[in-house]
Design a binder for these strands. Sequence first.
RNA 1: GGAGAGGUGGCUGAGCGGCUGAAAGCGACGGUUUGCUAAACCGUUGUAGAGACAAAAUCUCUACCCCGGGUUCGAAUCCCGGCCUCUCCGCCA
Length: 426
Amino acid sequence: MLDINFIRNNPEKVKQAIAHKQENAASVDQLLELDAQRRSLIHTCEQLKSRRNEKSKEVSELKKRGHDASGIIGETKKIGDEIKSFEEKLNGLEPQIQNLLLRIPNIPAADVPIGKDANDNVVVKTWGQRKTFDFTPLPHWELGHMLNILDLERSSKITGSGFILLKGPGAKLERALFCFMLDLHTREHGYTELFPPFLVNRTSMTGTGQLPKLEEDMYRTSPDDLFLVPTAEVPVTNIHRDEILPYKDLPVYYTAYTPCFRREAGSYGKDTRGIIRVHQFNKVELVKLVRPETSYDELESLLGNAEKVLQLLGLEYRVVKLSTGDMSFAAAKCYDIEVWAPGADKFLEVSSCSNFEDFQARRMNIRFRDEDGKLRFVHTLNGSGLALPRTVIAILETYQNKDGSITIPDVLQPYMGGIRIIARQG
RNA sequence: GGAGAGGUGGCUGAGCGGCUGAAAGCGACGGUUUGCUAAACCGUUGUAGAGACAAAAUCUCUACCCCGGGUUCGAAUCCCGGCCUCUCCGCCA
């Protein structure tokens, strides 16, 4: 959420941001019009209330001295009725304004490339060497099926398409990966490990910006109106909602493993093969709450923390700076990390590292007291570190051998209980 | 799921229709004293919104004692609904 004051003073900047982000956002003009109405109503209301307070005091004085106050009481009652009618108008207006405000996207940072969509993203880094094979590398869905570690037929039976059943060493690989990632981020990168709830309420979903815009894409439970988390970002960032953090506590670094649930409404028919796009997947998330002055440096180090996972796994990847058109609603700046999948023959997004500046913090009312004792909003950041299925894809496809077996990368071996190679069973 | 108790400022905790933005204590900050530390003493110590000012400083007003409604000239205080916390009982991984 942007500061209404900022919108008032910079309507053109906001409109430009909406255009650059290709957002179907709320109308700035309509918002400002309602905002003006609101302020004028508040003004009248407060003047009336001031009058009422004075009169009430008079009543009190009169009564104390044993005089009759019925005249003033009648008068004051009338003021009260007036106030009520203005307040009703105000109460009608405020949710409308709030709703519009929640539908205005964040402003892209100055160094974000302006563009229409993913085609205008800029590759800022590549890492690792393209693996060469003396045979044709297979896609992960064939490897998984052959090795009997990925059973998509049965998971469809259990739930439906887009859900995964991992078996034996496949399941162990999944567990090894998120354990490895959590250990890396807590031991080497200074993050505090958390294990948050997997269901969150509507307020939390609104705080991080999934609602109201993306309700279609979320799994919602009835009758409790709770949502399955689409990312650990939601429960973790909301930990400090409505809190004032001491200056000395910043920056705060959290990491958490959670499953993530996404309906992927609107992307039917995309990435249908294998486990590139699924409704439930595991992810280790990195979240930071920081001082505003440091947030762009913190974004770079967060990105580095996520990259480290791929470097240690020895997987080729590239870092892409997203253009305005491809960036999410709440982000001011965002890097994607894409890992190379030789079997699928393409780069797959495994992490999205974003700085939201104070956009989420304002929604969630997360503040800190700076050195001068003034209250300010923190800046929030997050990034995957990393999303698991696509990392698994890259591992299977990169480390496949001619006979279809998979060599486990060195850093994962301690987590694999002695398994060095996943080979065909029986 | 059943029964009860309760939610007040950074914290503890009083108030239970007007004199209360809220006692007292603790903490924090500033000062005096002190060779330093401690102690003692004095002072300060909420947030948000609207308006005034070109703007900052500042000033005025309004609101906020979990949230939302109601009663009343007037609500932290009374009534109703919700949320949350705690205790006891039942059930259960």
